[in-house]
Design a protein around this nucleic acid. Structure first.
Lengths: 350, 350
DNA sequence: TTGTATGCGTTATCAA
DNA sequence: TTGATAACGCATACAA
């Protein structure tokens, strides 16, 4: 195993000084085309790669973004993987890497990765309404971007999907179909227990729309398939065509409906809050939480802060909710004619 | 923003030399109890954290494990997240962090993270049967552990679930129930196209068991819900109770069966290859691919290599397949009496 | 346009 | 049991 070449080796090979090699790599000062070529060739010949640690030490930047994962049961695996993937790709486009941190390290994890100079910025996923990490973030030497909107996040960099708008648009849609009662298949007790801020936000939006449209919401916290079946039976007990807002356990819900011979879009109206782009959402009238858009905007913010763009700094951004009509809801009886042209239109949250 | 304290600051605060601080932290030489305490207190007072880059530079180790992700559609998100989580937790237990690398960097990604001294070891997930990264790994200065069994992986460190055994045990189980034909709902064309080695391994095991038991296998490559429905209809066309081996798209399959009023364990025998611990697998007769066990063994191997345990080095390990009986298959007609006691027994692969 | 020299914050060797 | 001190490999201020 031959020792890895250093920039000094490259310098010798190219017949220039070590600092010239460094400047060729960083482009931070003008270099003549001739020496640039000589150095580039030497780098190729030796397959030189700069030592990341030495770079971090001398340059005061690590080219690494730390990403704090959510706790296990907090979110759908699909949504999570999309976030992680998008973060990593976005980082690579800027020549950065992603370092994973588990949620169970809590606020200490933020202090650790910042204190040890392991990263240039931190992304915290699934922040809670009252989250110790929010206060910790204020004192760190590296910028922190939160995915989620904590209650006490004044002046911090927060970004999330607009769950409030989603609640609103989903309930409005069902109200527009003439329903006076909507059964919500909502997050389970276990998820509620985590205190994620998106739950109260979704709830607030849904309740606001319900008040405005004079609709009654019945909330069901569903963790298991049994919970889902109970909720579906409950919805069916009302007279007329039941209305379901499904924010979790979509496959289980569809399965329960199928067991009961209830065809979405005919015997029951279903609007789903979808978290990924998986087949479960095929053809459903749904609001997507747009994980890719959220991820991209998060990373734009991250690099904005790293680059020192003060314009990017502070405040909460929301990725707007929009509804896509599919086959799981009936066409409007009153204000428009039924027909296939009615499907797959989009409707923005107010 | 005050500058971060260094070990020299700690030394001054504690009234000792800088090297003593270093030795207190590493425990690499005996320290008197008195100075250990003084130093520890100083570290606390200053909330000192060692600079990771400086450590890597001077110590020739990074305390980081690079994990190369699979391509997007390669695996179920649940399985992936379990791997990533387990890797990260295992790393933390040994005071290491995890750096993510995307599959699209290919072999160059391995060279990059190794060459830049970004990690002490690399884990490559979802290796293909013929994978350029295998050859690259042989020339690297850091150990590489592969999840998967490449064809040309002689002498490399490989580890995976025993997909061959899984194919065998699944088909044997259905054969034991008296079936002469088994329909396999298998990975879609898109997954096949990636050339993952686990597909031929599963196939080989299934075919071997089929030959032994004189069973005919009908393979269906299912990417979409439509593919699944077609496969199910195909299985139903045969006389008698259909037998299904479901290795992908479990929810879609259950849904298709439910649509057709086929109750698993009564009108159809279903054995599933499950990739996560999600509700989809509830009560099914299944073989789990045991992602947690695989992850743990991978990380044991990683740290074995880092620690220089030569006993750990080289060769392929398989995590054995075992079948758990559930309600989706009928009890044995011949060699045992039917009954609830028959459920949830385990059966190892031969 | 290029070279020289210093410092970044550790680890580890050599002395004491 | 502890203290000086020399690397480690790069970035950058200062000179030329």
């Amino acid at each position: 195993m031959p020792k890895a070449p250093t920039s000094a080796d490259v310098a010798r090979e190219a017949g220039v000084s070590q600092s010239t090699v460094s400047y060729v790599m960083s482009g931070k000062r003008p270099i003549s085309e001739k020496t640039r070529r000589r150095v580039a060739e030497a780098i190729d010949r030796l397959t030189y790669e700069p030592h990341a640690g030495a770079r971090a030490l001398a340059g005061h930047r690590t080219s690494t973004i730390a990403v704090v994962m959510p706790l296990r049961q907090a979110s759908s695996a699909e949504r999570l993987m999309i976030f992680v993937e998008e973060f990593t790709y976005a980082a690579r486009r800027r020549d950065h890497d992603v370092l994973l941190v588990t949620a169970d390290e809590g606020a200490a994890g933020l202090r650790r990765v910042a204190g040890r100079s392991l990263c240039d910025a931190i992304v915290v996923m699934e922040v809670g309404s009252h989250d110790a990490r929010v206060e910790t973030a204020r004192g760190l030497a590296v910028p922190v971007v939160f995915v989620g909107i904590p209650d006490d996040g004044e002046g911090l960099d927060c970004l999330d999907f607009d769950f409030e708008g989603a609640g609103e648009v989903i309930v409005s849609e069902l109200a527009g179909l003439g329903h006076r009662t909507v059964d919500v298949i909502g997050w389970g007790e276990d998820v509620h227990a985590q205190g994620f801020n998106y739950i109260p936000r979704f709830t607030a939006g849904a309740e606001r729309a319900a008040r405005r449209s004079d609709v009654r919401l019945r909330w069901h916290r569903a963790s298991t398939g049994e919970d889902v079946r109970r909720a579906v039976d409950n919805a069916r007990a009302a007279s007329g065509v039941p209305a379901l807002a499904v924010v979790t356990a979509i496959p289980e819900t569809l399965h329960a409906l199928s067991e009961r011979r209830l065809r979405p879009g005919r015997d029951v109206d279903v609007v789903a809050l979808t978290t990924g782009f998986v087949s479960e959402a095929d053809g459903l009238t749904n609001v997507s939480t747009r994980p890719r858009d959220v991820s991209r905007r998060v990373m734009e913010r991250v690099f904005g802060l790293i680059d020192g763009d003060l314009a990017t700094r502070g405040g909460a951004d929301l990725v707007p909710a929009s509804l896509t009509r599919g086959g799981s809801t009936r066409s409007r009886p009153a204000d428009r004619p039924a027909g296939p042209a009615d499907n797959h239109r989009e409707k923005e949250a107010s």
